[in-house]
Design a protein around this nucleic acid. Sequence first.
DNA 1: GTTAGTTTACTCGGATATATCGTGTCCGAGTCTATTGGG
DNA 2: CCCAATAGACTCGGACACGATATATCCGAGTAAACTAAC
Lengths: 159, 159
Amino acid sequence: MRLSGGVETALHCCVVLTAAAEPVPAARLAELHGVSATYLAKQLQALSRARLVQSVQGKAGGYVLTRPPEEIKVLDVVEAVDGAAPTFVCTEIRQRGPLAAPPEACAAPCAIKRTMIAADQAWRAVLREVSVADLARMVGQGYDTDVMGSVGAWLAAGA
Amino acid sequence: MRLSGGVETALHCCVVLTAAAEPVPAARLAELHGVSATYLAKQLQALSRARLVQSVQGKAGGYVLTRPPEEIKVLDVVEAVDGAAPTFVCTEIRQRGPLAAPPEACAAPCAIKRTMIAADQAWRAVLREVSVADLARMVGQGYDTDVMGSVGAWLAAGA
DNA sequence: GTTAGTTTACTCGGATATATCGTGTCCGAGTCTATTGGG
DNA sequence: CCCAATAGACTCGGACACGATATATCCGAGTAAACTAAC
């Protein structure tokens, strides 16, 4: 039950893109975060497939958020990178073995399945409540310097 | 972000053990659930290491719950089988790259880490609220026959 | 009939192969920009 | 001076190896019960 490591970098990228007015290439994002450029490209492609970011090709191309950051929830990013599959897959053990339950009984999910689904939904609910804009706002707290401003300036500087 | 498949079988085993007064061998539990006996043994060993079940050796040996089922939470079983590690591991990306934050700034976890931890705790909270006794109680609902009673009888019959 | 010893058969426990998925990487297709030549 | 065509360089996108983790399995160590034989 470990979340894919790419989720962290993807979230950081989304926050950074909040501070950028122009498209930001994947290589630039990789340089800023100090991670492998080729691997980060994979996560950005996932975000692109999920329509969270839009890719702009050509010389001054890169990635841009498709929506205002308030409308991009953390859950969207997590599901885009890690997959939207439920955390618990029920193999319907009830239907196996000598005391197998009749198939029609599984129309209503069993107690175990219901519990796991409830936990899964609670987890998703928290991630759905926080948006990328919220993250960007929280990032700046507790620092003397304006972090998001520095990032924006660094992106604009082009070096 | 997928939960280990062994969690489901482990939970079913715990529920079944609720209906058994005598130790139940791993092979018997495997037969009842129609799963591989050798692999199920692995999950039971995990439960044993976590002190959720106690192994009784010898001819009439097997596994028994160490506590009343009300005191065994679903979270205990999940953490025993799948591991208690947090779902999100923060690699402290802030400390990398050209705009690296000072290490002392990471004393307080960043916004992303806080969000993921909150979601993780919400997930665990749900699993902590449900006990194995609750599961056993819910299992019987919606059936004409007394499922738990049938399981207990099958275990006592010895065939 | 009781009891001690021995045998037996059954149990769990950890160490061992295999499959699947996540991690990390590479090269090709597409497109916008800048240049350059002509009108 | 303006425009169009061309060349260039930079971008993303999907396809390709590698490693780690989860899955599935095996055999050995230990123990309680059952049996046997002697008392």
